[in-house]
Design a protein around this nucleic acid. Structure first.
Length: 112
DNA sequence: TTGCTGACCGACG
DNA sequence: CCGTCGGCCAGCA
């Protein structure tokens, strides 16, 4: 890591998100040490969706658990569909039991 | 180099 | 509940 842009760091973390789990842009940003710059994380996703990278961006939602980036999946319903197929219930563009499905890299990866 | 933008976040009124 | 503002940083014209 640190050879490529910080996008690579973001991609790595996102790829580490287990199926059926979700995290927030801010959590990833904080893990990368750019806490105030959660925007960059979302922006990295924007750059990732067109790349060959296997980045499960659908597992990344905002702080409230809202699927803010669903409009960037080609189809607004795709993100929710992907999440539900992994066992994550989504209601009103919001992840239900967000706290349960929440996966914090700063915590999960720290233990390991 | 400057200036604008962005899949955010938190605070304020 | 809604709109607005500041901050944070990287990419691009």
């Amino acid at each position: 890591m640190r050879d490529s842009s910080f996008f690579e760091h973001v991609y790595e973390v996102v790829r580490l998100i287990p199926p059926g789990r979700v995290t927030s842009y801010g959590a990833i940003a904080e893990y990368l040490g750019i806490r105030g710059s959660a925007r960059m994380v979302g922006w990295a996703m924007n750059a990732a969706h067109g790349q060959v990278t296997n980045v499960p961006a659908h597992r990344v939602v905002n702080r409230k658990g809202l699927l803010t980036g669903k409009h960037h999946f080609g189809s607004p319903a795709l993100m929710q569909q992907l999440l539900e197929s992994e066992g994550v219930r989504v209601d009103e563009d919001q992840v239900t039991d967000f706290a349960v499905h929440f996966w914090n890299p700063a915590t999960e990866l720290k233990i390991a």
